[in-house]
Simulated assay, not measured.
Amino acid sequence: MGRRNQHSREEQRRMALDAADALVAAEGLAGFSMRKVALTMGYTVGNLYLLFSNQDDLLAEVSLRTADAMYEYLRGVAAKPKAPLERLQAIAAGYIGFAQKHSFRWRLMFEHYLPPEKWDHPGLNARQAALFEFVEEHLSPLLPDASPKQLRTAATALWSSVHGLCVLSATGKLHWSGLKDVRPLSDLIVRAFVAGLREERG
């Protein structure tokens, strides 16, 4: 078992986050425990609770890491296509692809329910806002006359639809369709959504 003076507090926090991140990625929320994290670190469970107030606190930090990794991935995906519609479709497909590749980590962000006193988590709220602002940024060229409020509403509605498809795909609920590739579905959602808004706006 490691000694507390072997590493600084910040080093221990990083070690804990690395261990927790790897555990979530391998076993998901169902296989997660503070004891397993502490064992991987070589420290006691008691020492882990000196670094994080509780398990919810640690898992929230893991979700922050996942959100940051996903955001960086989507930025890279969006940089490739030149046409605005293609960029938006690439972002939607990239979001689903990230969830499929990092299923347990992605699911943690939506299956780990924080207690009420932690609902207003500044870090997680900021990441969520950043994702929707990112969608707004790439939807804006397709709706040049939309007001900021209209753009925010459209981006929220669009991404809610994409997220729904992502949940169905990530949880294996689309097997009945016989579709192995959901890219045509996400492309259709984006294309039909944008076309519908344009027709509505005349």
Score class of each variant (00 low, 15 high):
Lys80Asn: 09
Pro144Met: 07
Phe132Trp: 13
Phe52Glu: 02
His121Glu: 11
Leu151Cys: 06
Asn125Tyr: 01
Gln55Asp: 12
Val135Cys: 02
Pro122Trp: 03
Glu137Met: 10
Leu114Met: 09
Arg75His: 10
Tyr113Cys: 11
Ala126Leu: 08
Lys80Tyr: 03
Thr66Glu: 10
Ala79Gln: 10
Pro81Arg: 05
Glu117Pro: 00
Ala79Phe: 05
Met109Ala: 14
Val77Lys: 05
Arg87His: 10
Leu64Gly: 10
Pro148Met: 12
Pro84Arg: 05
Asn54Val: 03
Ser63Phe: 04
Phe110Tyr: 12
Val77His: 00
Pro148Ile: 13
Tyr95Lys: 04
Ala69Pro: 03
Gly94Asp: 11
Ala130Gly: 11
Leu114Lys: 11
His112Phe: 08
Asn125Trp: 02
Ala90Trp: 00
Asn125Leu: 14
Glu133Met: 09
Phe98His: 06
Ala130Arg: 11
Leu58Ala: 06
Pro115Asn: 08
Tyr71Ala: 04
Tyr49Phe: 13
Glu137Val: 06
Lys82Ile: 04
Pro84Trp: 01
Gln100Val: 13
Phe134Ile: 06
Pro141Thr: 10
Ala67Tyr: 01
Asp120Asn: 14
Pro122Cys: 14
Lys82Tyr: 03
Tyr49Arg: 15
Arg127Lys: 15
Tyr73Val: 13
Leu51His: 05
Gly76Ser: 02
Tyr95Cys: 05
Ala69Met: 14
Ala78Pro: 03
Asp56Lys: 03
Phe134Cys: 09
Ala92Asp: 03
Pro115Glu: 14
Gly123Val: 01
Phe52Cys: 08
Leu142Ala: 01
Pro144Cys: 01
Leu139Val: 10
Arg127Asp: 07
Ala129Gln: 11
Ala129Ser: 05
Ala83Glu: 11
Arg65Pro: 00
Ile96Gly: 01
Ser63His: 01
Lys80Thr: 13
Ala93His: 04
Glu111Asp: 15
Lys82Glu: 14
Gly94His: 07
